[in-house]
Amino acid sequence: MKNSIVFLFLFTATILCSFVFPWWIIAPLTMAFTYATRPSATAGFTVPFLAIFLAWALSIYFIDNGSVQTLLGQLFRIPAFMTPLVASLLGGFVAGLFGCAGSLIRPKKSL
């Protein structure tokens, strides 16, 4: 349940914040959120990774009519369909790293 909330929050916040702030806002955003919600280290990586990966991939799907991915495919010499995935992976990986760092840095609750 908690992971789902983190996922939904990060997914929504990424889309909203990214229109105003630079793309790397996902780094402090995910770190602050995992610091506050203290998921496990594994969830601290995977949930932000999936949230940002999906936010970026879906955004690209709706923004691009296929023309940009074709150009990027030619530019980077990879299949065009892979270019949104590569872009989304980059975003997801950044979020995963900071998410995991946030969850690890926060001290465990004392019993």
Partner: peptide, 16 residues
């Protein structure tokens, strides 16, 4: 990061 993010990167130049 600047180039490939969907909100200010190259994807914004899509023109249907």
């Amino acid at each position: 990061g600047n180039f490939l993010n969907p909100y200010s990167g190259v994807w914004q130049n899509a023109e249907a």
